[in-house]
Every structure is written in structure tokens, then in C-alpha cells.
Simulated scan of single mutants.
Amino acid sequence: MKFRDYYETLGVARGATEAEIKTAYRKLARKYHPDVNKEKDAEDRFKEIGEAYSVLKDTEKRAAYDQMGSNWKQGQDFSPPPNWNTGFEFADDPNASFGGYGGSYDGDQSEFFESLFGRGRHRQGGRSSNARQGMHFKGQDHHAKILIDLADAYNGAKRTISLHMPTQDPEGHVMTQERKLDVNIPKGIKAGQNLRLSGQGGPGMGDGGAGDLYLEIDFHPSPLYKVDGKDVYLDLPMAPWEAALGTSVNIPTPAGSTLELTIPPNTKSGRKMRLKGKGIPSKEPGDFYVVPNIVLPEAQSAAQKAAYQELEKAFDFKPRSHLKG
């Protein structure tokens, strides 16, 4: 997939105002409209211009797009960085595939566009068109993605999080406003679940209350653990003699404690050792899997090489015998 520089497509600077972006779009749209321009690539250029404008005219999508930074160039190989959208608060879009900045462009969507904003229909206008004196509307719900430690899902926690809400200054430049919230992380929460904070969304109209804020949960990447739903996996490095003879090891758990685990003799690399109910806690808790990974020490000294040679003599071991025709 290739990166699309929407600013380059419209011929504007990254700090362009809303008015400058609109002017550039109108000029290019007239130039490349298929009813006017009969050049072979005019229709493709017209679609690219429309997609770029759909992102840069939208405060929320533009703020999200700008998180990619200015180092990416048009046509470079690209995939969205992991958790690139973490911490950004967006107003609800009922047609969005994720939070408030889902697919809200009704033209042909490029693979690049869908990788960032998902697939969806054109975003409908806000409530302002229906606003009349005396009418009451609940505020829009907001969405944001946050990362927590796996230990928080095991133990529960109270955390202070920082969210960034995209907005515009009076001149039409995109900026973000930061706000901090104290959040109670319930024990047993899983990746992909949403925490609902009542009344922390957009303001209402009239006597309508504020909307709600939904926090989508994901876990910080861990050097030790992998998570699959409620189940947690730990790769356990082992010396060959530990796997062959059996041993007892202390293993760390995501809850912060340690467990003593008996490794039976002749344990094979990749074998899943299941600790039932030791995964993420819930009414039906997940499991904790320890996966042995046999690590071979390097033979560097003469004595170490001799030790391997003695092993070769001691075992009639032919690991590739099954490859014979």
C-alpha cells in the first residue's frame, strides 16, 4: 500500500487554513472534473482530489491524519503504525467503522483511506440544521482508544488518562485540546471492550444532557505476554537439559505474582502448559499458557564444543530421518 500525501494532492501547505484548503479543492475540482477535462487520467485525479479534500476539510480526520507526521512521502510503502489513533477523542459518527472518524467519504475509497478511516458512507450533518429555539437534544457521544497495562485487567486500577480533542482555531487551523480524566479500570476488562463514561461526551442542547464518552480498551505491548481474548501466553526459555531432565521454575504472572511450575522430563519446545483459570479474570476466567522454548547455548570454547561432541556420541539421534523418501 502506498502513502497518500493529501496536502501535496491539493497543493497546500500542512498548516493551511480551512479556507485555503477549500479554495485549492474547488480550483482543482473544476480543472479535473470528467465533464470538463477529457484527459485519460482526469477522472482518477478528480477522485484523488475528492478523497484528499474529504480528509483535510474534516477537523477530526485531518488531526488523525496529521499524526502520521511529515516524514512520509507520496508513494512510499505504508502501513498504519500500531495504535496510531490512541488518545484521540472523536465525536460519534453513526456511519463510522471506528469511533468518530470512520469512513465518511462517499466517493471511491482508496486502500490507504480505508486503512486509516475504515469503510462507510457519507457523514451526515450535525444537529444544527434541526436546531430551533426550545428544542432539546442530548449531546453527541464521543469515542477514544486508550492503552492500559495487562496488570490493570488482572487487578483493576484507577488511572489518569490524557485525551486530545481535535478542534480549530478562529483562523481555521487544526489544533487539539487536551483534557485529563480519572478512570476506573474494572478487573477483568478485555481488549476491544468499551468503558462508558456517562456525561463526558459532547454538550447537549437546551435541557438535553451531555453525551457519553466511550473508551475502547487495548493493552500496551508487553515483552513477556501475548493476549488472545481472555487467554494469556508466556514464552518460557529453557536450556536443553532442563527440558530433557525436568525441573521446577518460577514464572512471573501478569498480576504481579510468581508461580512455581513443574516442567516434566522430555518436554518439547512449543508444548502448551495450561494453567486453568489463571488468564484474565471474569465470570468465566481465561487460561494462562506457558509455552517452553528450548534455547541452545553457543559452543564457543574448546570445552563447550567437546561437550556437544560427547552428546552426539551419547545419543543415536537422527532428527531428519523422516525426510528420507
Rank of each mutant, 00 (worst) to 15 (best):
F288N: 09
S269C: 05
R127F: 07
F90V: 13
E260G: 10
N130L: 13
E89V: 13
E114T: 15
P265H: 03
Y308F: 15
K22Y: 05
L10Y: 02
S97A: 15
N83K: 09
H122F: 13
R26I: 11
T247H: 02
G107A: 06
Y154H: 07
R274H: 14
G75V: 02
Y105M: 08
D207Y: 11
K145C: 08
N155C: 03
E171F: 06
Y6N: 00
D169M: 00
G202D: 13
P292A: 01
L234E: 01
M165F: 10
F78Y: 11
L259D: 01
P240E: 04
E298S: 15
P34L: 03
G11A: 00
Q200R: 07
P170M: 04
G134D: 00
Q193S: 11
N95D: 13
D207E: 13
W72R: 12
L150E: 03
Y308R: 15
M68I: 07
G192R: 06
E20T: 01
I21A: 05
G107N: 01
N266V: 08
Q133T: 15
L213E: 00
M175Y: 08
Q309G: 09
V295T: 02
S110Q: 07
P285K: 03
V232W: 07
Y65Q: 06
N130D: 13
Y233H: 00
H322S: 15
K158M: 12
R320D: 09
L150T: 03
K278H: 04
K38R: 13
P264W: 04
L56Q: 07
M135Y: 09
A243H: 05
I21M: 09
A91K: 11
G69W: 02
H322M: 14
A91N: 10
A303I: 08
L296N: 15
A191H: 03
N83T: 01
